[in-house]
Computed example of a mutant assay.
Amino acid sequence: MRQAIEITSLQEAEDAIAGENVLLMYLSKENCSVCHALLPKIQDMMEAFPAIKFYQGDVGKIQEIAGQFSIFTVPGLLLYAEGREVLREARFVRVEELNEKLEKINAMYLAE
């Protein structure tokens, strides 16, 4: 199970997006049962993508992050490649479909 890097401020999130080639940001809330059920599945899936940086933030603790990234429901998964959002999933995420999309992004942006 791959642990995410904790984001504690909007600035940290923006710096990560600017500084990483490809990253997945998992945005959740403390009292969200769907968030807590989905996170272990995403953590397991991310084991297969070590080159994709994996971040997690709590929109309850960092409220401005929800506004900046237009998060209207949680969990929200945002995939950035070269500083641009290339994928957005929210609330009910199909892990198998997300895995297929990550495989394609991984091949496009991180293939050697």
Rank of each mutant, 00 (worst) to 15 (best):
P75S: 09
V93M: 06
K104C: 00
K104T: 03
Q3M: 14
V86F: 00
E47H: 10
V22R: 11
R84G: 08
G60C: 04
L24C: 01
A16R: 08
I105N: 02
I105F: 13
F92K: 13
Y109L: 05
E89P: 02
I42C: 04
Q63T: 15
I105Q: 01
V34C: 02
E96M: 08
Y55G: 00
S9I: 08
E82S: 14
E89I: 03
A81C: 13
T8D: 08
P40G: 10
L102R: 00
P50M: 13
L87N: 01
V95C: 07
L23A: 11
K61L: 13
E64K: 12
G76D: 03
A66I: 12
E30K: 13
D15Q: 14
L23R: 07
N106I: 03
K29W: 07
I65V: 13
I65R: 01
F54V: 09
G60P: 03
L23K: 08
I62T: 04
L110C: 08
E12R: 03
L24N: 02
L10D: 05
L102D: 02
H36N: 11
V74G: 05
Q43K: 15
E47M: 15
E112D: 13
E100I: 00
A90H: 02
S28M: 09
C32E: 00
P40M: 12
E85M: 15
Q11P: 03
Q11D: 13
K29H: 12
Q56F: 04
G57N: 01
R84S: 12
R91S: 12
F54W: 08
F54K: 03
I5Q: 15
K29A: 13
K104S: 04
S33W: 08
A13E: 05
F49N: 03
I105P: 01
A107Y: 08
E20L: 05
R91K: 13
E103L: 09
M25G: 02
L27H: 02
T8G: 07
R94Y: 10
E100N: 07
L102A: 00
S9Y: 07
A16V: 09
V34N: 06
K104N: 04
Q3D: 15
L10I: 03
F69T: 06
F54C: 07
G83Y: 11
V22K: 09
M46P: 09
A111F: 14
N31L: 12
K101M: 03
F92M: 15
